[in-house]
Design a binder for these strands. Sequence first.
DNA 1: AGCTTAACTAACCAAGCGGTCAGGACTCAA
DNA 2: TTGAGTCCTGACCGCTTGGTTAGTTAAGCT
Lengths: 203, 203
Amino acid sequence: MTPTRDGRKRTFVEEARRRQILACAVDLIAEHGYANATLARIAERAHISKAAVLYHFDNKEEILRQVLTETLDELTAQLAEALSAAASPPDAIAAYVHTLIAYMAGHPAGVRILVEGLASTELVTGTNMRTQPERWRIVADIFARGQQSGSFRDFDTHTAAICLNGAIDAIASEMLANPDYAPLPAAESLVDFTHRATLATGY
Amino acid sequence: MTPTRDGRKRTFVEEARRRQILACAVDLIAEHGYANATLARIAERAHISKAAVLYHFDNKEEILRQVLTETLDELTAQLAEALSAAASPPDAIAAYVHTLIAYMAGHPAGVRILVEGLASTELVTGTNMRTQPERWRIVADIFARGQQSGSFRDFDTHTAAICLNGAIDAIASEMLANPDYAPLPAAESLVDFTHRATLATGY
DNA sequence: AGCTTAACTAACCAAGCGGTCAGGACTCAA
DNA sequence: TTGAGTCCTGACCGCTTGGTTAGTTAAGCT
């Protein structure tokens, strides 16, 4: 993974500790948000001293940034795989919705990390992270390709992409708040809504 | 407004100071979120001492809670008025979308207060605030009424309501992030999407 | 004039924050 | 045996946080 700033390679212990520290940070964020992930609490959960945490990471921000990037990378990878398998733009939309909702259903911690993390300016600036603009661009591009190929009717792809992402996020947060809410039927419904709203007539 | 805990009525000065303190808190939250609204900063902005702030409010939480409820009440009032004027369920959906987006376009500070405030558990618990469940219920009821009257086709009103609210929120946050993004056309598009997705065929 | 009350300030407090530092314990090559 | 390097601790630092307290000032009532 991310190498040290000087070219030196990582020890076995160091690698293990870093993973452990990151895992503890993930848990704490998942429980009560980023504000809950203090150095003291991370150290306590890892059964090491606060200074040990800072021995393995330069500062607290590096930990949070690492947590955010790793979470984001995992989701992005799943998304890329699902999208590459889609046969048509309407298929890609369905795959996009299903993949995101499935991820969010399976990784409730990840949702919190991404939502709060991407909203925080200082955590995102200076990194090569895919921020909100890049997120809706993916969807807008799918819509645009579908419009050119004739499967989608004419509409504002930008707004459509934003709305679709917002709907997905809303379903995710409803899942977190209400355990009885079934994600799969909801995803099906959303795909249905989206297709009805965007497909060219007679498609 | 909210009276004192003991039956005593408010002084002119006290009322004015409370309003001033709340206004300062609103500004600070609008600028950099709730974490930015510390007692010291509120006091500094109001040109009074920290102790003076706590002279008028029992504690910091009371301030934040008051800010949130007032913001929420204002929006709820606008919403109720718009909905009561709607002639049909599809009209009501359109009114709902337009009112919310217009409010968010006109009160960027309010958006931040509501989003972050309603997400915070400790700020909402113990109050009679309309939380997320109550929010989608309004929309779900409109859909349900429209289904009974035949204007809407059959679908999961719960999921539809959640998706619609999510789409509205997403448009709002896009507006905040991108000043060039025009809210009115976006609202029009969203109403169009929603109607296409939900209206009964031939309607 | 004397007393009360509203409205406020300056100083202070304990707790928690991110972060530093000197040094201890251990391993291992020279 | 020694010295370097790894891994970690406990004590400490400066700072900010929400909140308290004692005391001051001005206005208003009797």
